[in-house]
């Protein structure tokens, strides 16, 4: 399984900008928002955490459709399925590789983007916590959508339609956590809910994804 993780990371790096591409996309979103809503600092500060969350969602989504599709096209998904690793483990590892290449750089770079959007001081800490706790769920849920649409030629748009509704709880609790943190309110409840959702998703969804892949390969 470690070998699979290393292979996927190596592929992401060799494919050019595995780490950088998500960040560049994030930067563009953050740059475009002030054009849309105006440059006033107080407006930007209010919507900053929401924008950063939406950016994370979209960056995650755009990189997801290839997570299984490439392996499906070159036949390695067939071979991996017959390999001595459980398919659930393969799915989990691929989601982890996806998170390391897109989610983790976002978490690390989020304070810089927060700066551009006038994020209020106390919110920085909570933004990093929220993204750090929430984005793994995005990758795992996304891998479920990718597994459902792996056999389809043009699955990208359909996958967005399938996956985005599943992101609702994570987005709500993640954004709420940052908002409450910024206003100095109690943060336990949204933090617990966010962490709970992520933990449950990591524990359960790989089984659904693996089932979907088996069905698709049949």
């Amino acid at each position: 399984m470690i070998a699979l993780l290393m292979r996927d990371l190596r592929l992401a790096v060799r494919a050019g900008g595995g780490f950088g591409l998500g960040l560049a996309f994030f930067l563009i979103v953050v740059t475009l928002v002030p054009f849309g809503v105006g440059p006033q600092g107080e407006v930007l500060a209010r919507i900053a955490s929401g924008i950063l969350w939406l950016g994370a969602l979209l960056a995650c989504l755009l990189s997801l459709d290839r997570i299984f599709a490439l392996d499906f096209e070159d036949g390695s998904l067939d071979l991996l399925t017959t390999a001595p690793i459980p398919l659930e483990g393969i799915v989990a590892m691929k989601a982890l590789a996806h998170w390391i290449t897109t989610g983790l750089p976002l978490v690390i770079a989020a304070p810089v983007f927060g700066l551009l959007l006038h994020l209020p001081g106390p919110a920085y800490f909570w933004l990093i916590v929220a993204l750090g706790v929430g984005t793994p769920a995005l990758s795992v849920l996304g891998s479920f959508g990718a597994a459902l649409t792996v056999g389809l030629k043009r699955g990208g748009l359909l996958m967005s339609l399938l996956v985005l509704p599943l992101y609702v709880p994570t987005l709500i609790f993640g954004a709420e956590l940052v908002r409450r943190g910024a206003e100095g309110m109690a943060t336990e409840v949204p933090l617990m809910m966010l962490a709970g959702i992520t933990a449950a998703v990591i524990a359960v969804v790989p089984f659904a994804s693996a089932a979907a892949i088996r069905i698709n390969l049949r």
Partner: peptide, 16 residues
């Protein structure tokens, strides 16, 4: 755990 399967496609990664 006795079987090794080889399909039409080789499952190679072109950048490796």
């Amino acid at each position: 755990e006795a079987m090794a399967y080889a399909a039409h496609a080789d499952g190679l990664k072109s950048t490796l």
